[in-house]
Simulated assay, not measured.
Amino acid sequence: MGFLSVLSLAQRWAAERLEPGAAAVDATAGGGVDTLFLARACGPKGRVYAFDVQRDAVNRTRERLAAAARDSESGSGNGSIARRASGGGSAPPSLAPVELLLAGHERMAELVAPEHRGRIRAVMFNLGYLPGEGGDRSIVTRPETTVAALEAALGLLAPKGIVTAVLYPGHEGGDIEAAAVEAWAAALPSVLAQSVQYRFPQKPSAPYLIAVSKR
């Protein structure tokens, strides 16, 4: 049996902190994979915020949520699909309301509702560019805004909450961003947070994971 992928481990660590009614943030919505995962984990009484600067990413995330809503309806045969939040996200009754935000993740401290500040249980980052057909690979996450977003995320976390960041050193500029995130995590005071790295050392260009758990 092999090791978990970095994406699977990020979700596992986030799931350990989440429970029905929790609030969480997808800092890089992309195709909506983590957004949907968080919405399922938080449940209908929770709340999820999903950020992306690309309208295509927001649309893909909205479509993934809508597909989950259709699957839920066809499987259960009941329940209406509620339109959710200002971003126009949709969610079936089994999912948390999702607020889709066409905005940089460095603005999360400003855009997360006051009642959820200091109560967020998980913030997930999947850095780099928007994958898949039609994704613009010239639009990538940047060290300066990523580190600012990580700082904001840490401030929003509840005690024992977690930030996960999947890093991609293999694309142009990705190694610089990864080094900046590593330096940020390593410099955190141990009384504030604990950080960990999960990496495959035989594949130095492969994606890897850094996670930070707030004390």
Rank of each mutant, 00 (worst) to 15 (best):
S195I: 02
T145P: 08
A29V: 01
A69L: 04
D136P: 04
K214S: 11
R17K: 15
A50H: 02
E133V: 04
A50Q: 02
S94Q: 11
S74F: 10
P114D: 14
Q197L: 13
A211N: 06
G135V: 03
G75D: 04
A23H: 04
M124D: 01
A91R: 04
A96N: 03
A179D: 14
L18F: 07
A68K: 03
G2V: 08
A122Q: 12
L36C: 07
F200C: 06
G104I: 01
Q202K: 15
V33D: 08
A178E: 11
T141S: 15
V196I: 02
V123W: 13
V140N: 05
Q11N: 12
R40T: 01
S138D: 10
A68S: 11
L101Y: 01
A15N: 09
A41D: 03
P201Y: 07
Q197C: 15
A180N: 07
P131L: 07
L65R: 04
V163Y: 09
L209K: 10
H116D: 15
T164E: 06
M1H: 10
Q202V: 07
E144P: 02
T35E: 02
I120A: 11
R137Y: 00
K203N: 14
T61R: 03
V181P: 02
E19A: 15
D34Q: 10
V212T: 03
G161C: 06
D136T: 00
R119P: 01
T61D: 05
A67P: 00
A57W: 06
K203E: 13
E177L: 10
G173M: 11
L157P: 01
V196H: 14
A149M: 12
G32Y: 07
R199H: 02
I176E: 14
V147K: 07
S8M: 11
R121G: 10
A15L: 14
W13T: 01
L4A: 11
A153K: 13
K214A: 14
V140G: 03
R83Q: 12
G88L: 02
H105N: 03
D52W: 04
P159A: 14
A180Q: 09
A152T: 08
E133L: 05
L111R: 12
L188Q: 15
G88E: 06
T146I: 10
G134T: 00
G75N: 08
A68I: 02
A178G: 08
K214F: 08
